[in-house]
Write a protein that binds this DNA or RNA. Sequence first.
DNA 1: CCTTGTTAGTTACAAAATTAACAGTCACGA
DNA 2: TCGTGACTGTTAATTTTGTAACTAACAAGG
Lengths: 144, 144
Amino acid sequence: MLHLERFLPYRLNRVAEAVSDEIRPIYKGLHGMNRPEWRVLVALAHIGPATATALCRHSAQHKTKVSRAVVALEKRRWITRDNDPADRRSEILQLNAAGHAAYRQIAGPVADADAAIQAKLAPGDRAALEQGLAALERAMGLVD
Amino acid sequence: MLHLERFLPYRLNRVAEAVSDEIRPIYKGLHGMNRPEWRVLVALAHIGPATATALCRHSAQHKTKVSRAVVALEKRRWITRDNDPADRRSEILQLNAAGHAAYRQIAGPVADADAAIQAKLAPGDRAALEQGLAALERAMGLVD
DNA sequence: CCTTGTTAGTTACAAAATTAACAGTCACGA
DNA sequence: TCGTGACTGTTAATTTTGTAACTAACAAGG
C-alpha cells in the first residue's frame, strides 16, 4: 500500500507549491509578473548577457516559456536584444538599467520571504533540509 | 544578490518536477491517467468511500481538479457514485473492483520507482531529507 | 416556516502550459 | 558546395489549469 505521507513526489510537489504561494505575491504584486518572467529576470540578472537557450538552461524552463517571457520583459522595456556575431540564429539578451532596477526592487523582498520561511525551521532541521535537498539534486542529475 | 542555487522555491520546484517526471510515465503509460486522476485514485484506495470534499483534502487538490478527475475515473468505470444519506448535496464515491485492480496494477511500479529514487541517496542523506522535509511541511502548515 | 449565510459540487470562461510545426541558420561529410 | 541533419527561436494548435459564477442543499436565528 502506497503511503501518500511518505511518497516523495507528492510531498515535494505539495511543499514546493506551498513555498511558491508565499513568494509569488511578491513579484506578481510588484509588477504583475508571472513565474516564467520572474525566473528569466533572475537568470539574466545573474548570468548577464545571454541567449535564449542559455536562459532555458539557467532558469530550468522550456524554450516556449522563455520565448514568451522574453517578449513580455521586452514590452516592459527591461531588456535589450542584440545580434549574436557568432550565430545569426540567436540574439544576445540583457537587462538594461530599468531591468536591473526592477530586479533589485523585487529581489530584496523575495530574499526576505525566503529567509523568513527558512527561519521557521530549527537550525538542525534547516541543515538537514539543505543536506537532503542537495543530495536529491545530485541524485536527479540536476547539478554537476 | 539572490542565489538561485540556494533559493528554496526554485530548488523545490525543480527537484519536485524531476521526481514527478520519473513517476508520471508509469500511471500515464499504464492507463493514460493524468496527475489529478492518479491522486484521486490513490486517495480513494486509501481512505475508501469518500465525498469529493474529502478527496480534495486528502489529495491536496482544488475541487475543480477533483471534480474533473472523478468524472474521468467514472468514464473508465473505476468508481461508483452513491447518495450520501447524511447530505443530499454530496455523493459517496468509491472504487469498484476494476478501480482497485487498476490501483494495484499502478501502485506497485510507482512504489518501486519511488524506492529507486530514494535508493540513490546515501542513508544519511535520505534521513536528512526526511527530517528536513518533515520540518518544512510542519513549518508550512501542511501537517498537524 | 422564512430569511440569511454557508457549503458541496459542477460548469463556463479565461489564463497558462504543453506539443507540434515551422523558418532560418549552422555544421559536417560526401 | 551541396545535401542532410541538427539547432535556435517563434508561432499555432491543443490540452490543462485556475477563477468565478452558479445550482442545490444545509443550518441557524428570528
